[in-house]
């Protein structure tokens, strides 16, 4: 079954590669983008990695990743000129479909849980199958054709841009940290000044560290990879804490930090600019009291649920 699932997943990675290839082709064709070559290359390289991982040596993929890094470092990846959607078509279709337009999303969410829970295929295959079923549902309902679906796909991928691949790169970084023994080292360093073995203190240390590092870095995902390896595992999981609770509540503890930092510009500074607010920290001021309360609750909740 495991081999079957691995092979089956490969089909979905090829599909992802295909979607990325669409984005690459359209980026190359975007004459108005001064960085069209770099942007096109970025997506095509990713398409090759996703679809061809089975046939490429890891060494080659490693080199390709370095190239992605160089493209990004030298500002050669830009969203460019992405064609928006036709508001009139959208308005007309919204009139016709009403609330049914949400149907494909409901299909996706429910079907993926059903497949994960009631079949031996597991959650990842579940997401793959239900994404395809949801797309077909959407296409049938909206009478979408292949041409517009192609453009809808490339538009979504290109507008997401490099932010879309960041979670996977952070997961890669986490794996490199593990292979280099960084987790053990931070654990050793911290255990010198912090008592290991006290459940509540361990949980508090982990949750607060998630929040603080997210505040500094402005990105909860990045903090998760680093802090879970360095603190979450040795101070909570290794003491008997349930990994799933540690992960779920650790990430949301990080979000408390996101709500309190000007580093998370997309969430806290963007509204200030959009609405021409006078107080630059206005959004953060409204969020800080709730975020603080939530952090305390999460420490308690993790302590209760994990042990």
């Amino acid at each position: 079954m495991t081999t079957f699932i691995t092979n089956f997943l490969e089909v979905f990675y090829v599909l992802i590669g295909l979607i990325m290839l669409f984005a690459g082709i359209e980026s190359f064709r975007d004459q108005e983008n001064p960085a069209r070559i770099g942007t096109g290359l970025f997506w095509v390289i990713l398409a090759v990695i996703f679809a061809g991982a089975k046939f490429l040596p890891y060494l080659v993929i490693g080199i390709l990743i370095l190239i992605l890094g160089l493209l990004s470092l030298f500002k050669q990846i830009k969203p460019g000129n992405i064609k928006g959607i036709d508001e009139k078509v959208a308005e007309k279709s919204a009139q016709r479909l009403g609330g049914w337009i949400f149907m494909p999303s409901v299909v996706l969410a429910i079907l993926s849980i059903v497949i994960a829970q009631f079949t031996p295929l597991g959650g990842q295959i579940g997401i793959g199958i239900s994404s395809v079923v949801a797309l077909i549902t959407a296409a049938v309902m909206t009478h979408a054709n292949a041409n517009t679906t192609y453009h809808d796909s490339e538009r979504m991928v290109r507008s997401m841009g490099t932010a879309g691949i960041l979670p996977q790169l952070l997961a890669m970084l986490g794996a490199v940290f593990t292979a280099s023994g960084v987790g053990e080292l931070t654990a050793k360093a911290i255990s010198g000044v912090f008592p290991v073995g006290n459940h509540l203190l361990g949980v508090a240390l982990y949750c607060i560290a998630m929040a603080v590092f997210t505040m500094i870095m402005g990105n909860g995902f990045a903090a998760f990879a680093v802090i879970t390896a360095g603190i979450g595992i040795p101070f909570v999981v290794a003491q008997g804490g349930a990994p799933v609770v540690v992960a779920a509540l650790g990430m949301t503890s990080g979000y408390c930090g996101t709500l309190m930092t000007p580093m998370a510009a997309n969430f806290n500074s963007l509204p200030v600019a959009l609405m021409e607010m006078k107080d630059n920290l206005g959004v953060i001021k409204q969020q800080a009291p709730v975020a603080t309360v939530l952090l305390v609750i999460q420490i308690g909740l993790m302590y209760v649920l994990a042990f």
Binding site: D86, A90, V132, D152
Partner: peptide
């Protein structure tokens, strides 16, 4: 994998 579907329903309102 979920992006094409979201793209299609976004185009349609």
């Amino acid at each position: 994998l979920t992006l094409p579907m979201i793209g299609v329903i976004e185009r349609h309102g």
